Amino acid sequence: MTRKNPYRKKAVALEYDQTKAQAPVVKAKGQGYVADEILKRANENDVPVQEDKSLVEVLSQLNINDKIPEDLYQAVAEVFAYVYQVDKKTRN
């Protein structure tokens, strides 16, 4: 008898275009192998990754190309602030 892993890794990739006055958009999402691929490609392209299981859980309910809802703006803004800081440190 095989048991399924109760926790499968999940990942969500967001895109934010500062030149547009729009909310960030879900560009990729997945679990298991797909999540591993999202993280692998992020690492290959020097895209900072932040781990936040509860936020990923909520964002994974959205569809690809969906804008994030207003009630998630604060949480996502914190992620982008983290990414900005990591990017700034990496460049220096």
Rank of each mutant, 00 (worst) to 15 (best):
Leu55Arg: 01
Lys89Pro: 01
Ser60Ile: 05
Glu44Gly: 10
Ala35Pro: 07
Ile64Glu: 05
Lys20Ser: 11
Asp36Glu: 15
Ile64Val: 12
Asn65His: 07
Tyr33Arg: 04
Ile38Arg: 04
Ala11Cys: 04
Gln61Pro: 01
Val25Arg: 13
Pro69Cys: 04
Glu51Thr: 11
Pro24Phe: 14
Val86Tyr: 03
Arg41Trp: 15
Glu70Leu: 07
Val12Glu: 05
Gly30Phe: 09
Arg41Glu: 15
Phe80Pro: 11
Lys53Ser: 11
Ala81Arg: 03
Val76Lys: 05
Ala13His: 11
Asp52Cys: 03
Asn5Tyr: 10
Thr19Arg: 12
Ala42Leu: 08
Lys9Phe: 06
Ala23Tyr: 14
Glu44Cys: 07
Tyr7Trp: 12
Met1His: 02
Val58Cys: 00
Lys4Gln: 06
Glu70Arg: 10
Lys40Leu: 14
Gly32Thr: 04
Arg41Pro: 11
Ala28Met: 02
Ala42Pro: 10
Ala28His: 03
Arg8Asn: 15
Glu70Phe: 14
Val79Ile: 14
Val34Glu: 09
Tyr84Met: 01
Asp71Ser: 02
Lys53Trp: 10
Asn65Pro: 02
Tyr7Thr: 12
Arg91Asp: 10
Lys10Leu: 08
Lys27Gln: 11
Leu55Pro: 06
Asp52Tyr: 02
Arg91Gln: 05
Asp71Phe: 09
Gln22Thr: 13
Asn43Val: 11
Pro69Thr: 00
Glu15Asn: 12
Asn92Gly: 09
Lys29Cys: 02
Asp36Met: 03
Tyr33Ser: 04
Lys40Ala: 15
Val47Pro: 09
Val49Glu: 09
Asp87Phe: 04
Asn92Leu: 01
Val12Thr: 04
Asp17Gln: 05
Ile68Trp: 15
Lys67His: 14
Glu70His: 11
Phe80Val: 07
Ala75Trp: 09
Ala81Asn: 07
Ala35Leu: 06
Tyr82Ser: 03
Lys88Asp: 01
Ala42Met: 02
Glu15Gln: 15
Lys89Glu: 07
Glu37Ile: 00
Pro6Gln: 08
Asn5Gly: 07
Gln85His: 12
Lys53Thr: 14
Gln22Ser: 14
Tyr73Asp: 05
Val86Trp: 01
Val47Gly: 02
Ala13Arg: 06
Thr2Ala: 00
Pro69Lys: 02
Leu14Asp: 06
Tyr7Gln: 10
Lys67Val: 05
Ala77Phe: 13
Gln18Glu: 15
Leu72Ile: 01
Asp17Pro: 04
Asn65Tyr: 12
Glu57Asp: 11
Val56Pro: 00
Val34Ala: 01
Lys20Ile: 03
Asn43Asp: 15
Glu57Gly: 12
Leu59Ile: 00
Lys10Ser: 09
Leu62Cys: 07
Val49Ala: 10
Gly30Met: 05
Ala28Pro: 03
Tyr84Gly: 03
Gln18Ala: 11
Val79Gly: 10
